[in-house]
């Protein structure tokens, strides 16, 4: 278990190191997220009430689309007939590769989200209840489900032609539970809804996360065969 965690950490570290050298995906995601905030402001120009209503949806849509830019790349470098050429030569568990890549994506998307959050809050004049743990639970669980499902689908799409075109097509239908539950719980917290009303939404996020934590153990190795 400890050895497995070390392998995952090592792969995640290497991924992040490679990303830190170029910062390509990170910069693209961050700038894209901020741009979307601006574009939404122009396109919707919402009044006070409408702003509160659409804010959680806009926030998550931005996170999903920005994250998609990074996810698409996480297996792209090794795409082709020999996926992950370098990494697969090492006798590392296939599952460790998945969780390493997912952890790296989680860090990158997490930073982008933390950077975009205050900007969105300012642009749409929404005060975020930062001391409310439920807000963070919604953000963390939603992001976790998105990254786990997204990393898996990115690995899957990397086996096909035009993977970057295919990824959103395959990912978003499968991501529907996260889209619904993340937006509704974040929105509920902002609207000061009762925890009981949102409990089922959190439960959906947890179930989704658990399923996509378990699936790679059973299925990920099939995606890397050559």
């Amino acid at each position: 278990m400890v050895r497995f965690a070390r392998k995952v950490g090592l792969i995640a570290f290497r991924e992040l190191q490679a990303e830190a050298r170029t910062k390509e995906a990170f910069v693209a995601m961050l700038v894209f997220a901020l741009l979307v905030a601006v574009v939404f402001s122009f396109a919707l120009n919402p009044g006070r009430e409408a702003r509160e209503e659409i804010f959680p949806g806009l926030l998550w849509v931005t996170f999903f689309f920005a994250g998609l830019l990074g996810l698409g790349r996480s297996f792209a470098g090794d795409r082709g007939f020999e996926p992950l050429g370098g990494l697969l030569l090492a006798p590392v568990d296939r599952a460790a590769i998945f969780f390493g890549k997912a952890a790296a994506n989680l860090v990158l998307v997490g930073i982008v989200e933390l950077a975009a959050l205050p900007v969105f809050s300012a642009f749409f004049d929404i005060r975020l209840p930062l001391s409310d743990g439920r807000l963070w639970a919604s953000l963390v669980l939603g992001t976790l489900g998105f990254i786990l499902g997204g990393t898996f689908m990115a690995a899957l799409a990397a086996n096909a032609r035009a993977a970057e075109l295919l990824l959103p097509l395959l990912l978003f239908p499968v991501l529907v539970p996260v889209v619904i539950a993340a937006v509704q719980t974040t929105g509920g917290v902002l609207a000061r809804a009762l925890t009981e009303e949102l409990a089922f939404g959190y439960r959906i996020l947890v179930v989704y996360t658990v399923v996509f934590l378990a699936a790679p153990w059973l299925l990920f190795e099939y995606l890397l065969e050559s």
Binding site: P173, V174, V176, P177, I180, A181, Q184, F200, G201, I204, V207, Y208, V211
Partner: peptide
């Protein structure tokens, strides 16, 4: 994924 989708949509 389908049952999770169904639960989330129902909720």
């Amino acid at each position: 994924d389908v049952p999770i989708v169904h639960f989330s949509v129902t909720w």
